[in-house]
Structures are given as structure tokens and as C-alpha cells.
Amino acid sequence: MINFVLHRFGQTLIVLFGVTVIIFFVLRVMPGDPVGLIFGEGDDMDLGESRRLYEEQLGLDQPLYVQYAKFLGEISRGEFGTSFVRGGEPVIEMVGRALPLTIELSVFALLIALAISVPIAILSALKQNTIWDRGGTAFALIGVSLPSFWQGIMLIMFFAVWAPIFPVSGVMDAHLRIDRITGAPITDAVLTGNWEAAWSVLRHMVLPAITLGTGISGQFVRVLRSSLLEVKHQDFIDALRARGISEPTVVRHMLHNALPTTAVIIGLRIGALLSGTIVIETVFAYPGMGFLLIQGINARDFPVVQGVVVLLTAMVIAANLLADILHGMLDPRVKLSGGTGSGA
């Protein structure tokens, strides 16, 4: 087990290194002239001096490998520079505000996805080839095909405009304040006993979380259903039934065996979940990481874009690593195969 974990850790370090190289090249080298991008080309004003200062500040006058080493050093210390736009606010502080919001939204969405997909997948697998199964499969198909931003807008239309049950955008009602502890609004509100704010935040989060959650639950249903089907036809399930074990207990055994795959899928879907938040946060004007990223791009606020991309990717890699290790712990067969690299 230790070996397996170390092996996966080593692989993750390689991936992390590669990812920083790609981000470095995409964001620092490819635009050719990031400074020109910031100042705008063909500008009439004489910006020669400030251009040179910026280039020096970004270290663009040095050779590539020096720039890369500097870049690596900076991001590993969490120094993402300062925003070009918002009065030079450090990027790490902006991200620090946005990240807890995104994490809380993602967790909420994940819970919704599980609450929807687990029962549907069980029903679908147990009653294979019946109308229930068809319904479950159709749900999964619709879930993966529905454009999440459209679903979000339609939810706004139904539940915020036509039947004003939920708020349209933002984190909470404007007059409320939450004392900051972790930065995650519901957590902080509960910790400080500020129930009115907690309720408000929860209501603001319902529509975006449902939108995100139904989107990924389509994937979950597909995976959990097919791993349940694999388990369903194995001998030990027949043996359990033959011994007269009650059906709920049999289902519990099936779930127990289908769990490792599902856990891995959930870990690996974190990337999709975070990708989803970018779009959904824009739909609901929810000031998390995605919102920050899009604002940064529109304002050409380059350090913000870089900080968000680096952090989001690092989170996905960490989630993948955790998922793999969890898989190894839940399923003893994994260790024998010596890691789960890009194998044949």
C-alpha cells in the first residue's frame, strides 16, 4: 500500500511539473507579447517607459528557463502577483475570497448529484431492461447532453421570475453580513450562529447547485449503473439470495462492491465539476473562481487568470490523486497491478 501511494505520488509530481510547464508556455510565452496585450497595440500614447518597467517586472528580458524557474518559485510560494486592474490587490487575496465560495457550491452540487444519481442507478440496475431502467438511462443521457448554462437560465426563469421562490444571483441578501472565519459563507454563518445569513446563502445556492448537480449526476448514473450490473451477475450475489438474505441486504452488498469505481469516478469528475462552476457562476453572478476567471479574462487581468488556472488545475490533480489512493484502499486488486498509470 505504501508503495502504491508513493508510486502515485511520484506520478503526480511529474504531472504537476508538466502542468506548470504547459501553463507557463500557454500564458507567458504564447501570446508573444503579453505586455502589448495589456497596453493594447497601436496605442497613441507614449507608453515606452511604463512598458519597459512592466517587462522588467515580469522578467521578460531574461531567458526562458530563468523565467520558468522564477515562475515555478513564485507559484509554489503562492505568489501570483498583483491584479492589474483592482488597484494592485494581491491575486492570492482575491482567490482566497473566491475559492471557499466555489468549494462550498461544489460540495453542495456533489451532494445533490449523489442524492439524485444513487437511487436512480440502483433502481435502473435492479430492474434492468424495464421501464425503470429506460427512464434511468434516459435521465443520464439528458443529464450529459443538457447545456448547463441553459438549464441555469431556465431555472432562473421558472423559480426566480415566474415563481419567485429563489434569488437570481449573488451570495446572499445585500443587507446581511457574515463574520469571516473560513471564508466559506454557510460554514461561517453556522459557526457564528448567524442563522438568518446561513438561510439566505443557502437559498442563493440552491439554483446553481441544482444546475451543477444534475449535470454531473448523468455521468454518475451511467457509471454506477454499469458497475452495479457487473456486480449483480456475480456468484456471491446469487449465493446471498440462495441463503435467503433479505433484498435490502443484498443491495447493500452490491453497493459495497460497486463503491470503489464510483468513488474514483467522483474524484475524477471534480475537474468537470470545477469546469462547470465557471459557467454556472457566470450565469448566477456568483463571485467564485469561475466568475473571477472570466472577469480576469475580460479585463485582461493576466495575473488573476494565471492564478485561477494554476489553482483550479492543482485542485483537480489533488482530487485525482486522492481518488486513486481511495480506490487502492477500497479495492485490494489495484495494488497488485502496481499503480494505475496510462497502462495498456
Binding site: P260, I265, L273
Partner: peptide, 24 residues
């Protein structure tokens, strides 16, 4: 690329392939 296979190693790989599918 079928989502779930019964081989443990295959599961993780298939899972990763599934994860490679963008979900937007």
C-alpha cells in the same frame, strides 16, 4: 472506452477516460 469493466486496473483507466470527457 466502455465505462465500467470488471478488471480493477481497467476500472481506473476507464474511469479516467470517462473523466477525460469534458463536461460543460
Amino acid at each position: 472506452f466502455r465505462a465500467a469493466r470488471n478488471q480493477a486496473a481497467g476500472e481506473a483507466r476507464a474511469a479516467r477516460d470517462a473523466a477525460a470527457e469534458p463536461n460543460v
